[in-house]
């Protein structure tokens, strides 16, 4: 079965003709040229294909595209100048960059869902992704710096923003 389906990606409607067996990752990359999500294992193990579905990280290699209909999808291409991207740059939280899209998507969702994330929650979330270049310490520092910044922002009086 091949069908035309409409996906809500980064706030836009995208139409693609897909095989029902195509994964969301296949469709993002091959039909829509949104190649920020990477094929690292296509087996749900490495997290480099992570995108957000209704604000929650999912591994797009393990999700059928047809299953994503009706969900608000966010890919790395949908992040514009976010604190997490800044933090990854400033803390040197990547080297080759291949796992980076997935890591950032996960970390971005984490700080949104858990503005007060403890080390334990960070570990629970971020152990879903594999990075082979960094020591993870850089990623930890990046995520922590965003959490800290957010906390600071919340404490500041509204009118100053």
């Amino acid at each position: 079965m091949i069908e035309k389906l409409t996906l809500d990606i980064n706030g836009e409607q995208w139409v693609a003709t897909v095989r029902m067996a195509d994964t969301l990752l296949d469709v993002l990359r091959e039909k829509l040229d949104l190649t920020g999500a990477k094929r690292g294992c296509e087996n749900g193990d490495c997290g480099s294909c992570t995108v957000l579905a209704d604000g929650l990280p999912v591994k797009s290699c393990m999700m059928l595209a047809v299953d994503a209909i009706g969900k608000k999808l966010t890919t790395i291409e949908g992040l514009q100048d976010t604190p997490m991207q800044h933090a990854f740059v400033e803390k040197w939280a990547f080297q080759c960059g291949y796992c980076t899209s997935g890591f950032i998507m996960n970390a971005h969702a984490l700080v949104n869902q858990h503005p007060d994330a403890t080390d334990e929650i960070m570990e629970e979330w971020l152990s879903s992704n594999i990075c082979r270049c960094t020591s993870y310490q850089e990623i930890r520092e990046a995520v922590k710096s965003v959490l800290k910044e957010q906390r600071f922002d919340r404490k500041r009086p509204r009118n100053r923003r």
Binding site: G47, T50, P57, V58, K59, M62, E124, W125, S128, N129
Partner: peptide, 9 residues
């Protein structure tokens, strides 16, 4: 079971 992201699915 699995990892956090996988548990979302």
């Amino acid at each position: 079971i699995g990892d956090r992201t996988s548990r979302n699915q």
